[in-house]
Design a protein around this nucleic acid. Structure first.
Length: 451
RNA sequence: CGGGGUAUAGCGCAGCCUGGUAGCGCAUCUGGUUUGGGACCAGAGGGUCGCAAGUUCGAAUCUUGCUGCCCCGACCA
């Protein structure tokens, strides 16, 4: 898989970064406040946002990680439309079953349409249109697309919007055992996906509804401002993330077993007795944000919609399906909830909109400008994404902006330091500042940022 | 969908009770002084006060209706 290396570099005098000094009053939780203040999103209507350049860059970073890890696990990307025909949903019976959360639309010919809240029906339609044989299985198709759910009460900024970007994937298998393998692939893939974003996501058993069984997990990240209460065995936090060399088509049961053995549950599924049975220092109760959900639902849609394949010995059978979601836009909120301080956001490098914020303390000063241009060129040539603050604002304002937007490193150059042959490298996460020669600073950043 | 708020300049707010035609801070623009952690002085631009109707000589202000947005709860990626 080709690794897309961005070489985009930006200078603030040409970028669009509408920073707010004051917090808009509608924003209650920290991620929402910071996204608005950092000029990442603009609310256009309740639960509906425009993605400004800085926010869009993070969205793309998340998408790319998802795409890479999906490919690794054998899932194939496609793209389905946002608008769907009601007829498909009538086939599955969900057109009437789905409540007011579904945004229903009528086109000029008076046909019933809808803005998709999810895509089980449509993917089943695609599958049944082409796939006839068990030999074409297993198959896992996914897309990353905007969804709309007309929530009664959107809130928490992008964490609970009405319009949201979601990765939703669907697996097709000949029987339940094969479906379990498909499920395990996504289970492992999700562990890797969230870990790459710098998040500690804990799989927790979720309600399987009428299907029953053990094949539904929510992936929850821990954050003080999380929406739901969670309970877990500390042991699960120390488990090792499966490596990128994992063979996804080998037996993944040992990995899944290891990750599902320690106790972990949201309040809905909480078993107080089992939790209390743990040693007191093993018990962690915290708050969490759901960022992913995987689910086996058997033949619910394949039966209703006639998605069948020929088997070697049993004639045509409806395929066993599962669905696998990741809340891509929600992840921005979750990432900020998990990574911030009083000054602003602290992006993990893998999802940061830029890697380095280059601060020119005296724009217009010949020597400082020259030094900054040189640093900028050398870093960007090495593939580092640099946001160069070449404006003539005051130093304090520049520092405050950099802290707010939370780039992993700040590289600060001014006449005073340059006179002594040094620039400053600040690590956003720790606040640590180091004075180094420009060469040493570049080397340090390259070492920290390139793999 | 129940309960509670709120709507005045790009953002944050005052004015409303006691009607007399709009103000403050930040931001923006101009000039000057500044310049290493959100500078200062002077000046300027920017608002049919959410929408509609009503009361009144006169409505941001009082009355009624509508709408948007936010918060708590129930529900959800």
């Amino acid at each position: 898989m080709p690794r897309f290396v961005e070489r985009v570099c930006m200078r603030l005098t040409r970028f669009f970064l509408p920073i707010l000094k004051e917090t808009p009053k509608e924003a209650e939780i920290v991620s929402h406040r910071m996204m608005l203040r950092a000029g990442m999103v603009r609310q256009q209507s309740a639960g509906i946002y425009s993605w400004l350049p800085l926010g869009l860059r993070v969205l793309r970073k998340i998408e790319r990680i998802v795409e890479e890890e999906q490919a690794r696990a054998g899932a194939v990307q496609l793209l389905m439309p946002t608008i769907q025909s009601a007829d498909l949903w009538r086939e599955s019976g969900r057109y009437d079953a789905y409540g007011k959360e579904m945004l229903r639309i009528t086109d000029r010919h008076d046909r019933d349409m809808l803005y998709g809240p999810t895509n089980e029906e449509m993917i089943t339609d695609i599958f049944r249109g082409y796939v006839r044989s068990y030999k074409d299985l297993p198959l896992n198709l996914y897309h990353i697309q905007w969804k709309f759910r007309d929530e009664v009460r959107p809130r928490f900024g992008v964490m609970r919007g009405r319009e949201f970007l979601m990765k939703d994937g669907y697996s097709f298998d000949v029987d339940k055992e094969a479906a379990r393998h498909a499920y395990n692939r996504m289970f492992v893939s999700y562990l890797r996906t969230f870990a790459r974003m710098g998040l500690k996501a804990v799989p927790m058993k979720a309600d399987t509804g009428p299907i029953g069984g053990d094949m539904s997990h929510e992936f929850i990240i821990l954050a003080e401002t999380g929406e739901s209460e969670v309970f877990l065995d500390k042991a699960i936090l120390g488990l090792e993330i499966p490596s990128q060399d994992t063979d996804f088509f080998s037996d993944l049961t040992p990995i899944v077993d290891a990750w599902t053995a320690p106790y972990a549950a949201t309040d809905e599924m909480h078993d107080a007795a089992a939790f209390e049975a743990l040693g007191p220092d093993q018990r962690v109760s915290a708050r969490g944000i759901e960022v992913g959900h995987i689910f086996y639902f058997g033949t619910k849609y394949s039966e209703a919609m006639g998605a069948k394949v020929a088997t070697a010995d049993a004639g045509d059978v409806p395929v066993h399906m599962g669905s696998y979601g990741i809340g891509v836009s929600r992840l921005l909120g979750a990432l900020i909830e998990a990574n911030h301080d009083a000054e602003g956001i602290i992006w993990p490098a893998a999802v940061a909109p830029f890697h380095v914020g280059l601060v020119n303390l005296k724009s217009g000063d010949e020597e400082t400008d020259k030094a900054c241009e040189d640093l900028y060129d050398r870093l960007t040539a090495a593939g580092v994404e640099v946001l160069y603050d070449d404006t003539d604002n005051r130093a304090g304002a520049k520092f405050a902006t950099m802290d707010l937007i939370g780039l992993p490193y700040q590289l600060v150059a001014g006449p005073r330091g340059l006179k002594n042959g040094v620039v400053e490298v600040k690590t956003r996460a720790t606040g640590e500042k180091e004075e180094l020669s420009p060469d040493a600073a570049v080397n340090k950043l390259l070492a920290a940022l390139t793999r």
